[in-house]
Design a protein around this nucleic acid. Sequence first.
DNA 1: TGCACGATGAAC
DNA 2: TTCATCGTGCAC
Length: 181
Amino acid sequence: MLMHKLPRDFYERDTVLVARELLGKYLVHGEFAGKIVEVEGYLGQQDLASHSSRGITKRTEVMYGPPGYAYVYLIYGMYHCMNVVTEAKGIGSAVLLRAIEPVKNITGRTQGPGLLTKAMHIDIRLNRHDLQSNDFFIAEGPPQLPFVIVEKPRIGIHFAQEWVEKPLRFYIKDNPFISKL
DNA sequence: TGCACGATGAAC
DNA sequence: TTCATCGTGCAC
């Protein structure tokens, strides 16, 4: 299977562009692989829905670091969420991976950020991991048919005031593995 | 040093 | 609609 790893330049671009282009790419962790079918963009310190909105802290400094690294955190004490850091160093932006389509060695459901990480065996130990590595990365998959991208408001960010309705969630239209309608 | 609260998922 | 479960951020 063609597995051309995405270069760091891919991530060092506008977050919305990176988010849209991550759809259809292959997330690889060791023996596990899945096709990314749903993502959300988190734009930086001005984005009230983003963890980076409170500035640089021990937790968010990875978001403000160089692009192409994983930001993995524990949510609700029991699930992990995985993001990829985007844009230049100094900008606290990232793309949350919300759902994948199983490709290799995946058991269990993958529709939702917590289920995705569980199925891919991704946890807090992979926080700050360089996605240019050989054990954990995102790659261009094999050629596939073109698809339509659906834009919707992000999930679970009711507190984010004027950012609540911004269309920063993207998914592959009609894909059966997206997390919600 | 303490405490309220999630970028969730599953059950009721 | 409620609950499980714990690290983070901010108040005190």
